[in-house]
Design a protein around this nucleic acid. Structure first.
Lengths: 205, 205
DNA sequence: TGTACATCAGTGAACGCGCGTTCACTGATGTAC
DNA sequence: TGTACATCAGTGAACGCGCGTTCACTGATGTAC
């Protein structure tokens, strides 16, 4: 890792990691290209060997984040085993765990204001992550009475919105800050009530 | 408004409005004090007559946002009339309407990373807004079987999280961007399913 | 194994720029008489 | 109504700074022979 010479060895990735660290500390808009270079132990000019600029650096951090995210979601979903319901709940927990464990990636992905669709590689992997959520919702829908079930994409949007809201409002020292409950509990109970509303859990489970 | 002389007349508020405009366009971290001054037609130095710096400017924008927000929520809640349920749903709609109508305020409040508790005036009015949500949830709880009802503060946190998530993910050109449904519909159906899960709406209403 | 050479990652100096912040000032406004 | 004066909001020049970006360069690494 520390090659400590004229050539860095793996500067590209070191810059991404410096960026993630800086985003975690100061937010996606709160740092400069020069800071990232310095954090990686390198001259600002060296950054241009690997990235087009600051935005490109953030985009790569986000891309790696989506990669990890998609992997975690797929792993949690586990092909719908042992049951559609259990797998669905596992993806919810995985969402929150990802946000906690990879805050820099999460911020680069969802709070940097970058346009996912402007970057094809980014759009592809983001789509892969979204597909897991939607498949989980679709499999869940099969257990609902056909006439009354909302579209699977709507269910996945609801769950995504609640998960994201919990992360943003209660995971950091944010506005709701008194943090009445642990985020994990908040999300778990919230999803539980929601699933009961869909008729997928017993009325007073 | 346009006094067009050496003295501006109402520079303080003009600066806040310039700030709101800039936040809407470039995000809470994406503009400078000098830009705000220029947008208000004034020298950067003049800003210091009214604000301690850029953060103070953002804090005042957020404070005014919380003021408007609290007022809208109180108006929508309408003292729980005509029913606890209807009033609760109205606050949900008001939340989204606020985010749409006052995007600069919303971003200053929830996306600027400012610490609400660092500023007493801000903390006070933010608390007032939160109190409306919690009261709405508390009144709703009274209609639930006592043994099984979750705490009112949890219910209000759930709803707040889902509302915020819908705003962040589906209201702007954000990551979920294909925007499968109008945000208003998404929030309304989401809250509906959630309330059904609480036993407050008939199982297949 | 040794030498010559090509490659290219990173340097460091340079540039012009806009930033935040300060300061003595200026001139518009309001008020006392 | 008119004059003198106090107030204070906004000016404009100045400062030092760090930024993004470019450029010719340097020196470490890899490879051909």
């Amino acid at each position: 890792m520390a090659k400590a010479g004229y050539h860095h060895g793996n500067l590209r990735q070191a810059l991404v990691e410096a960026t993630l660290q800086l985003i975690t500390e100061k937010g996606p808009q709160g740092f400069t290209l020069s800071e990232a270079a310095k954090a990686a132990g390198v001259t600002p000019a060296a950054v241009y060997r690997h990235f087009a600029g600051r935005d490109d650096l953030i985009a790569e951090a986000a891309r790696q984040g989506y990669e990890i995210f998609a992997g975690l979601m797929e792993y949690a979903y586990n092909d719908g085993q042992p049951s559609a319901l259990a797998a669905f709940e596992a993806t919810g927990r995985a969402y929150l765990a990802f946000a906690r464990r990879y805050p820099g990636h999460y911020m680069a992905m969802f709070e940097s204001g970058l346009s996912v669709n402007a970057n094809p590689a980014l759009a592809a992997v983001a789509g892969r992550a979204r597909a897991v959520l939607e498949q989980a919702a679709a499999r869940l829908s099969e257990h609902m009475p056909p006439g009354r079930r909302p579209p699977a994409s709507m269910v996945s949007a609801h769950i995504w919105a609640m998960s994201h809201g919990v992360v943003e409002l209660f995971t950091r020292g944010a506005p709701g800050s008194r943090a009445p409950f642990p985020p994990e509990e908040l999300l778990e109970t919230g999803i539980g009530i929601y699933l009961r509303g869909l008729g997928l859990l017993p009325p007073d489970g």
